[in-house]
């Protein structure tokens, strides 16, 4: 029990920080200042930024504690994957939140997604996992790091997409009045998708090199590979669809969210479809 306690308090504190950031961001856009000014929103944004930074730091400590406890990084079990994704998604989103103030209201879409992961994580057992021999390969680091950036870029795109869709609803339209037009948001969202395609491609290449060294084949259409290729292809289809047809903003948003859903299923759904995926042969 004592062993488990090492990372859990930090994890709970990190998730609490994310939860507070979620509520503060919603309050910040939903509760307008006198005369409709955004002063209240601007103050809340600073609080959200501080809470996000705190959440990332606390989750970083939780990961380090677990690493020390079980002797390896968060690579194997779903508990570890969720914990490390919450950290990396939070980190990349915090940077974008800090650097792009005009797009901060999109946090009301992004942070609840993080909280879906957080709630899921709380239902899992933090038991120690076995570190397979094939995970000693150095390409794992590159593959995983690229994958984290890729998913985080998709998440930023989801936030922007959510704004484009939510703006259709009369009740919440004012939440996003400080944000640029749908046209600008749409272009930025697809730039994120393009960047995601670059990182996704690099992730697949690094994964193929790892697989060649670890399993003696660079590609074999296993559950994870097929799903990852499907997501890469979906990104390509989305970008080409946008080049070919004039897509309304809301539909553009639906496309981006669908691509994210595919990527999400690849990361967190495939371990249920194929427990052997990326775990090496016994």
């Amino acid at each position: 029990m004592n062993e488990l306690a090492a990372e859990l308090p930090w994890l709970w504190a990190g998730l609490a920080a994310y939860a507070l950031a979620t509520f503060t961001s919603i309050g910040g856009v939903a509760i307008q200042g006198p005369g409709g000014t955004l002063i209240h929103a601007q103050r809340s944004e600073r609080i959200v930024l501080a809470l996000l930074i705190a959440g990332v730091l606390l989750l970083g400590v939780a990961i380090a504690q677990r690493w020390i406890r079980i002797g390896h990084g968060p690579w194997i079990s779903l508990f570890e994957l969720l914990m490390s994704q919450l950290w990396s998604l939070g980190l990349v989103y915090t940077i974008s939140y800090w650097k792009l103030p005009r797009f901060r209201p999109s946090a009301v879409v992004v942070l609840p997604v993080l909280w879906v992961l957080g709630t899921w994580l709380l239902t899992l057992e933090p038991k120690a996992s076995h570190f397979p021999a094939t995970y000693y390969n150095e390409w794992k680091w590159i593959h995983v790091a690229l994958g984290k950036i890729y998913l985080a870029l998709l998440l930023i795109g989801v936030g922007l997409s959510g704004v484009m869709i939510l703006r259709r609803a009369e009740r919440v339209r004012s939440w996003f009045s400080a944000m640029p037009s749908d046209d600008v948001i749409d272009r930025l969202a697809w730039r994120m998708m393009m960047l995601a395609l670059v990182f996704d491609s690099l992730m697949l290449i690094a994964g193929a090199v790892w697989a060649q060294d670890a399993w003696g084949r660079y590609w074999q259409w296993d559950a994870l590979e097929t799903s990852a290729f499907g997501t890469w292809l979906a990104l390509g289809v989305g970008i080409h669809l946008r080049l070919t047809y004039r897509i309304p903003a809301w539909l553009s948003g639906v496309m981006i969210i669908s691509i994210f859903a595919l990527a999400f299923a690849t990361y967190f759904g495939m371990p249920y479809v194929s427990p052997a995926a990326h775990k090496g042969m016994v």
């Binding site: 259409w221 296993d222 559950a223 289809v237």
Partner: peptide
């Protein structure tokens, strides 16, 4: 077509 082909090839 490639997406369908990849889906069918699932699990090699």
């Amino acid at each position: 077509m490639l997406a369908v082909g990849a889906g069918l090839t699932y699990d090699n």
